[in-house]
Design a protein around this nucleic acid. Structure first.
Length: 941
RNA sequence: GCCGGAGUGGCGGAAUUGGUAGACGCGGCGGAUUCAAAAUCCGCUGUCCGAAAGGGCUUGGGGGUUCGAGUCCCCCCUCCGGCACCA
């Protein structure tokens, strides 16, 4: 880092350098804090102006890690800061808050190693993060700050859990409703009393609930009623095969498992049955999918969410199971297919190794079946980890010894089990159509099973399974129909013959919400002696997290949640927990699982609106003003949350909306992802990487490894300790100041693009601030203005005001800053009035420097409360403009013309231009194209 | 494998609707200033041919549409991101 000259050097000249920048920045940060400049009142509070429209600009709040801010954090934060300051100047009441996503594994893992309570390390990290964010000059309303670990915050997280627990999804109204309304309908007899037919926790348990009428409510005992009601709750407890991560000591949601490994830490994940809290998010699959249409979100994020939800339309079809005698047994094997039109080509069936039919098959096995081989296969397949499945997709499987009847052909076909069929999707069974499905083709080849094509491939088709369009063949009454017609016809036939019905399936699974960790929100749930769960009453919230003596998980194949160690805390009574219908002294046990980190981040954007409210999660009045129809107007954060946080938060929001707590149907109106900040790295010829301090630049663009002198190539890579290319924001601020840092990150390139950090480039932005300083301030430190306005400067200022405003609106900060450069390069001296407007343009970008100049100009602080300057449309263009003249699309000359010249004048001027006359010698002009105000193109040969 | 996004000087990038490609910044070269240096200011800086005037080429590669293509269409290559036995 080159040493910057200090303003305290021999000369007393006051120049903009790191020392002055720091002095100015600390001065104004202190001023803002002391004068509550960034505090935004709520409706009804003093100073609130209800006539102004609102703008809610939200950052993804950080997880406060021990290592402090990364340079990636201030990228998005600076963007929202500029927008927030600009919108405020444009007359909006701007809500721009910040807080802490503070529950989570790293603090707990640190606690296991060191014995320091996670709360201690987390609060230290929060202090450090807060210090850093304040040092950047971000205009957060710090009076709204909170952390997800605060008891008066997670009290309401628990309250929301109870709201969802006490709700059910009504498919007729396509919305969540209070569970009391369901019970009332049962009591009144207006709704059939039966288990929830969509309760996935009962599917596959061999007890398909649909249609099973339980009889009148009044005739049912307490246990049956509870079982029925619980099957509808949007939060439910179920024994499920979950993603168990032994290394993290907890179960994980599907969304947290990537390629069979944990999203955090990348540890192997195994499948294990556990009794866990689940959210019935699948009930909202269609709402979550359709809601995306109206949102101003990046299309890639919408695509990711909709692919995660994975809606597919098809049919469920029953294949009657045949007894060894060949006669139907009365039971059917139900499959889901998106291609009912291909059923005539279904030459065999496959069920997942976990499918109940596998156990049944052993009972009915014909003597010739090798039971041992079947058992071995099922055992092997069931224990295969997801990682192993990823690595080896060879088609293997065994015959179950059973046959079913293909209802379309009327012929028996064999049933296999194979691990390429997943128990977790559809019914865990498929009809295999090798002619139209490559996986089935591969399996059929491996097992020597017949293949029948039911769609005519084109003549030149050389592949195996054919999945394209074409007329149906070998399919009796479907022959000749295209796929769409054939599907519709087949579904009608199946329906008429009671073999099947249309069905929509989703890849989305219910959301596993229990974690066996310590550092998370406790559930507001207790259990009685019989293991029934009961919600604690609202007035006993929060259920506070007890201290623990040690945090190490106990090694066990039957994992116990860590909170079970807090024995005194676990033991409570019905009276203490507020559970009705029991003797107050009746002992109850608290739920010892905790909520995942997502719980706190699911609704933090709501709490900012009314963070100190002790009576409600947020007040109705604040909700209606700050959220209204659009909720968050702009949400900026990383793309890594495309299907985790952003899906979960939408789900909670929809529940709260349906239950009447929120007006807006969706939480985040506009979403924007800032790009990753990468770093340069150097690569040898063999593609190995060299740490940056081992490389030097010999000449422009040519780099060598210092030790060997071997050339290396510059590439971009993620910042990492091993490459020694991690940048600490504190260091950059110390060297240049926060205003320079802010400008640099915004000038690097488009906000959404991934782009490399290049320390060498920062100086350019620092020089810009020095130029601005010199433009306005003398070496004695006084503001210098001129009384004679320069017309070119005036015009350029109008263009700057116009372009900067427009570019901020479309989040194109790099071009807005380029416009500031152009203005400063052109302006020699400003009048007081020009300086006034120019400083206001600077204010969102470099708030500290703008405040200082504003004060030196003799204006009363703060410039942040000033309106954005106006511009004059007529000053945006010159009277005379340069018009390019092309011949055959190639530039041959340019001419100056009055800006409103008509086509004829332009054509004439072009054809009379000396260069053009010369160029056209010996050629015939065929046509002249004139674009008014843009160019002239002459077609000639 | 499938689905997105991208590829522009030595580097980061600009070109908002098909209309002067390379704005702006970094770096580089030259000059002014200085005892000297830093800082600052001025000029030049895609590439090839040419002494110059001027001209050719140029937005990953190839083809096309158009008076005109970085931008639209088709094929291919490379990189990044996501999904991945979902029937």
């Amino acid at each position: 880092m080159p040493e910057m000259p200090k303003s305290t050097d021999a000369q007393t000249a006051i120049r903009y350098d790191d020392t002055l920048a720091e002095a100015i920045e600390i001065k104004w940060q202190t001023y803002w804090q002391e004068h509550n400049t960034n505090k935004v009142p709520n409706p009804g509070e003093p100073g609130f102006d209800p006539s102004k429209p609102k703008f809610y600009a939200l950052d993804m709040f950080p997880y406060p890690s021990g290592s402090g801010l990364h340079v990636g954090h201030p990228e998005g934060y600076t963007a929202t800061d500029i927008i927030s300051r600009y919108k405020k100047m444009k007359g909006f009441n701007v809500l721009h808050p910040m807080g802490w996503d503070a529950f989570g594994l790293p603090a707990e893992q640190y606690a296991i190693k060191t014995g320091v309570h996670p709360e201690v390390t987390t609060k230290q990290s929060i202090s450090n993060f807060r210090r850093q964010l304040i040092r950047f000059g971000f205009c957060y309303d710090w009076s709204r700050e909170f952390g997800t670990i605060d008891t008066d915050y997670y009290k309401w997280t628990q309250w929301i859990f109870l709201q969802i627990y006490n709700a059910w999804f009504d498919p007729d109204q396509n919305r969540a409703r209070p569970i009391d309304e369901l019970i009332a309908e049962f009591e009144a007899g207006s709704r059939k009393v039966k288990l929830n037919p969509n309760a996935v926790e009962y599917v596959g348990a061999g007890d398909l609930p649909d249609g099973t009428d339980a009889g009148a409510w009044s005739t049912l005992d307490r246990e049956t009623r509870k079982a029925i009601v619980d099957s509808y709750r949007l939060a439910y407890l179920a024994e499920q095969t979950v993603n168990w991560c032994p290394k993290l000591g907890t179960a994980l949601a599907n969304e947290e498992v990537i390629d069979g490994r944990s999203e955090r830490g990348s540890y192997p994940v195994f499948r294990k049955p556990l009794r866990q809290w689940m959210f019935r998010i699948t009930a909202f699959a269609d709402r979550l999918l359709e809601g995306l249409n109206d949102l101003d979100w990046p299309s890639s994020t919408k695509t990711q969410q909709s692919e995660w939800i994975g809606r597919s339309v098809g049919a469920e079809i029953d294949f009657p199971i045949l007894a060894p005698s060949g006669n139907p047994m009365g039971e059917a094997l139900r499959v889901f297919t998106t291609r009912p039109d291909t059923i005539f080509g279904a030459t065999y069936m496959v069920v997942a190794p976990e499918h109940p039919l596998v156990d049944l098959a052993e009972d009915f096995a014909p003597p010739e079946l090798d039971i041992k081989r079947l058992r071995n296969y099922v055992e092997w397949a069931r224990n295969r980890t997801d990682i192993e499945r990823q690595e080896n997709k060879e088609k293997s499987g065994v015959f179950l010894g059973l046959h079913v009847n293909n209802p379309a052909t009327g012929k028996p076909i064999p049933v296999y089990t194979a691990d390429y069929v997943l128990m977790g999707y559809g019914t865990g069974a498929i009809m295999a159509v090798p002619g139209q499905d490559q996986r089935d083709w591969d399996f059929a080849k491996a097992q020597d099973l017949p293949i029948v094509r039911t769609v005519q491939p084109p003549e030149d088709f050389e592949g195996e399974a054919y999945t394209g369009q074409g007329p149906a063949i070998n399919s009796h009454f479907l022959d000749g129909l295209d796929i769409k017609q054939a599907k519709a016809t087949m579904i009608e036939w199946l329906r008429a013959h009671k073999f099947g019905a249309p069905k929509v399936n989703y890849k989305l699974r219910d959301w596993l919400f229990s974690r066996q960790r310590y550092w998370g929100e406790p559930f507001p749930i207790v259990f009685d002696d019989w293991g029934n769960h009961h919600p604690v009453s609202e007035d006993t919230l929060p259920v506070t997290l007890p201290p623990l003596a040690d945090y190490a998980p106990e090694e066990s194949s039957d994992p116990q949640p860590l909170l079970a160690k807090a024995k005194d805390w676990v033991q409570t009574t019905a009276g203490e927990a507020g559970v009705e219908g029991f003797d107050p002294d009746k002992p109850m046990r608290r739920e010892t699982n905790t909520m995942p980190g997502w719980a706190g981040s699911c609704w933090y954007y709501l709490r900012y609106i009314d963070p100190k409210n002790e009576d409600r999660f947020i007040s109705k009045e604040a909700e209606q003003y700050w959220l209204g129809e659009n909720a968050v107007d702009l949400y900026i954060g990383g793309a890594e949350h495309a299907v985790l946080h952003l899906l979960y938060a939408r789900f909670w929001h929809m529940c709260l909306h349906d239950l009447g707590h929120l007006t807006s149907p969706e939480p985040f109106r506009k979403l924007f992802h800032q790009g990753l900040i990468t770093s340069f790295a150097y690569q040898r010829g063999d593609k190995t990487l060299v740490p940056v301090d081992m490389v030097e630049e010999r000449s422009e663009g040519h780099y060598v490894e210092i030790e060997t002198g071997a050339p290396v190539s510059q590439i971009t890579a993620k910042m990492s300790k091993s490459l020694k290319n991690v940048v600490n924001p504190d260091d950059v601020i110390a060297d240049y100041g926060a205003d320079t840092f802010r400008l640099y990150e915004m000038y690097m390139g488009p906000l959404e693009a991934s782009k490399p950090w290049n320390t060498r480039d920062i100086i350019g932005l620092h020089r810009l601030l020095q130029k601005i300083w010199r433009l306005c301030i003398t070496e004695q430190g006084d503001f210098i203005t001129t009384d004679t306005p320069d017309e070119t400067t005036e015009k350029q200022l109008h263009r700057l005001i116009h372009k900067a405003g427009e570019d901020i609106e479309r989040l194109s900060f790099n071009t807005a800053i380029a416009a500031i450069f152009e203005f400063v390069n052109l302006a020699k001296k400003l009048t007081e009035d020009q300086a006034d407007r120019f400083i206001r343009v600077l204010a969102p970008f470099t708030p500290h420097l703008a405040e200082e100049l504003w004060e030196k100009l003799g204006r009363a602080p703060s410039v942040t409360t000033q309106p954005w300057p106006d511009f004059d449309e007529s000053k945006l263009t010159d009277d005379e403009i340069e018009i390019p003249i092309q011949v055959m699309g190639k530039l041959r000359s340019t001419i100056m013309l009055p800006k409103d010249s008509d086509n004829k004048a332009m054509e004439e001027a072009a054809l009379n231009d000396d260069k053009i006359v010369k160029f056209l010698e010996g050629k015939t002009v065929r046509k002249v194209i004139v674009v008014p105000g843009r160019l002239v193109n002459i077609v000639a040969n």
